[in-house]
Design a binder for these strands. Structure first.
Lengths: 236, 236
DNA sequence: CGTTCACAGTACGGCAGCGAACAGAAGAAC
DNA sequence: GTTCTTCTGTTCGCTGCCGTACTGTGAACG
């Protein structure tokens, strides 16, 4: 049973479930604290659990043979890890790990799958979530091909902030560089620019959004697109 | 009923279905010839039909507000258009249109959905197909961020060739530029390089792979990754 | 309290790809 | 055939980002 003081509705997917269905799941949840770098999915290892972040942020990262890497997806309080288990794929090729530490609800994959297969509200919700994931993947593909670093960085910070439900969080330039698929030096330069514009502030390993509207203006249209997708997901 | 002379098994998804299930679907198929640019999905318009390409190639293209565009997915004989209908999304934001003309099997979306919901072989197959689509989307995201034009172009030509089941097809530099999200001039330069290396040949609006192995060597690792994903999909 | 280390600032040459433009050449239309 | 359109070849300056490398600094730890 879930520990006291943990509110599962901090996860927006769970918050969207009808009370009954949520209660049916509650006994199976375990609240866990994820540290930076903790893997919840390891390539080639069967996925045994799904995670619903409460205030942690998970990253899906694609790594090339030469070691170059880019984030290809992010899972915050609006999402759930382990989509492949819904799609008859017990494992996958990309790792999912904790980008920003925090809490998440852990649950056995077979329980989620069974409930999903019952075709209740969770079925519809996760289907729409998967659709959102696909759409966002398409935008990311385009965004990476077309948009400049500064725009993408602003977008990334905003999305992470939304996914975390916080205006500041721990993050180094080094890791942000991996997320964006650029050099660490490029991140330092760009971050410095954004700071000079008064949009963000940061110190060693910690970053804070100081002017959210300004940052939105400095980001690419993709941020709004992403946000609209999520609103659609949770509005109907 | 399906016209004579049309072999539905040219589509690899359909070919993977057990005889019985395929036969149940056959009466509902209509063979259509798709011309370049024909839209099978229009943003904001409910998706009424799914298409299984036989020797046509469909493209999913993401377009930005300033008109810049990139291909974010491709559907050949290994796939099916209209995934959103399986995910409780009756419409989507990205168009799907014919990139390389040819034939496809058209079928009412509610029939596919109903058969999918029966949880027979089609259910499993399309689930795994969706998983493949998600994985490939992730690779595309990374590929666009990290790889140079020449590599991506080689990859695109090989994938298209596979999707079509042909070593040559109609395609202008202009359209290839949209697919890759680069200038038309960049395509001309890169294509010229590949031609000088003896890997491809082309004339106005027509392109031919002349040295497949060489082209594979000139492409990024993503091509092999994509191909492996498909093999996994169809191997069992 | 000084050493160490992780993180951030900055610099420099190099080049891939961009934007814009113009010219030639193969087909299509007349 | 002659015109018109579409497709391809190519050039020029420009800039964003890279690879690499060195320096500076806050924080943790001995």
């Amino acid at each position: 049973m879930l520990q006291q003081g943990i509110d599962p509705k901090r996860n927006r997917l769970l918050a969207s479930l009808p009370e009954r269905e949520l209660e049916a799941l509650l006994p199976h949840f375990e609240a866990v604290t994820l540290a930076h770098g903790d893997h919840v999915i390891v390539p080639g290892v069967p996925i045994r659990h799904n995670y619903f972040p409460l205030n942690a942020l998970l990253s899906l990262v694609t790594t090339m043979e030469d070691g170059a890497a880019v984030e290809s997806g992010v899972i915050g309080r609006e999402g759930m890890s382990g989509i492949p288990v819904l799609l008859n794929a017990e494992q996958t090729t990309m790792p999912t790990f904790t980008q920003v530490p925090g809490e998440a609800l852990k649950i056995k994959a077979e329980i989620v799958k069974a409930e999903y297969d019952r075709r209740g509200a969770l079925h519809t919700l996760l289907n729409r979530y998967m659709h959102t994931v696909v759409v966002m993947g398409s935008y990311s593909t385009a965004c990476n091909a077309l948009h400049k670093i500064e725009l993408r960085m602003a977008k990334w910070l905003l999305l992470s902030s939304d996914g975390l439900g916080a205006e500041e969080f721990d993050l180094t330039h080094e890791f942000l560089a991996v997320m964006l698929g650029v050099r660490r030096a490029s991140v330092s330069e760009t971050a410095s620019t954004l700071r000079n514009e008064g949009l963000i502030n940061y110190t060693r390993g910690h970053i804070k959004i100081t002017d959210r509207l300004g940052l939105e203006a400095a980001s690419c249209e993709c941020y709004t697109k992403f946000k609209d997708e999520y609103e659609r997901l949770f509005s109907g």
